[in-house]
Computed example of a mutant assay.
Amino acid sequence: SVHSSFYAISTTNKPLSQSSHRIALIIIYTVVLVTGTVGLVIMIRVLKTNLRSWTTIAFLNLLLAHVIFLLTVPFRIHYYVTNHWSLSTLTCKIVSAMIHLHMYVVFVIYVAILVTRFVQYYKKTDRMEFYRRLHALAASVGIWSILIIVGPIILSKYGTKKPEENKCFNFGQQAIEGSVFGFNIFLSVVIILVSCILGVIVGIILYSLIKKHGAACRNQQEFWAQMRNINLIIIIFICLVPYHLFRFYYLTHTQDMEESNEVFLSITTLTCTDMLLIFTKMGIFQVCGF
């Protein structure tokens, strides 16, 4: 069932006890919290232009996804430092579920941004806009209303087995059972395939621009617009794809690879640093305008 599938997305059965894994997780989540917060401050300052732009609306939704997840990061850091969960089981479920919701929401938003830019390129338009700001707001509400509706359902089924006392993030026992196993494989295959397709499209566009303009392509605005797309593709392949590649192996070796899986999962949260990478490279502070 869908409920069981979402339940199985959280993939650690036992609390992490190996110091090397705990140290790695503490470092990763601390970096995510600090750089993610700085990036959000930059993003808020930048996103003050056309609120009907598809790109701007997408980045605003990305900002919201990061904010919601970053609120849960201090709980993770505290748990891995102390190896002790002192809050309720419900809080544990919420914190554990948010890393997965964040990962998939961010991926969907990345895809939306890239597809929008591809359409702009092929249609030769400078900007794609909603006709009214109300339409843009409705589109965003539509995206998040799905989570508002599905979220409580997920939490009601998420981690049906009571975790060990003072431990958290151990809701993944069913990840290899029946249809749940297939659902996890399906999600990973989709993300890897879509990522590769997006990468190929960016490569084709860059090749066509270089072929058309030669050495002068660096003077073309279209070229630098596609380089911004390269930034997103790099983030996807560094932060998201490795986890889903590793997941194929993990799902057949769950008993031996639980700690490693948690580290791979934490790498997906490095997407919270995307604002620093996007807005500080090549002077890209005009992202809302194209």
Rank of each mutant, 00 (worst) to 15 (best):
K93H: 01
M257G: 00
T269D: 02
E129Q: 07
K212H: 07
A112T: 14
I204P: 00
S19P: 02
S20R: 13
C288Q: 13
I109E: 04
L114N: 02
Q120T: 06
K93F: 05
H21P: 01
I233A: 11
L62S: 10
I197V: 15
Y104I: 14
L51M: 09
A65M: 01
K161M: 08
V287E: 09
S1I: 06
Q221A: 10
V38D: 03
M282A: 15
V106S: 09
S17E: 08
P152V: 11
I197A: 11
E222P: 01
I278H: 04
E258Q: 12
I113H: 04
W224M: 10
C168N: 07
T125V: 15
Q226C: 05
Q18W: 13
T11V: 13
F171Y: 13
L193H: 07
T269G: 03
K212L: 06
R247V: 13
R133Y: 09
K124R: 15
H213F: 15
P242G: 09
F246A: 03
K157I: 12
T30C: 07
M257V: 03
L47C: 11
M43L: 14
S5G: 10
S5H: 13
M282G: 07
E177F: 15
V67H: 04
I9Y: 05
V67C: 08
A24P: 00
I191M: 02
H21A: 08
K93C: 02
I154F: 11
L47P: 01
T30A: 07
S188C: 08
L193K: 07
Y80P: 01
G39D: 03
V108Y: 15
T12P: 00
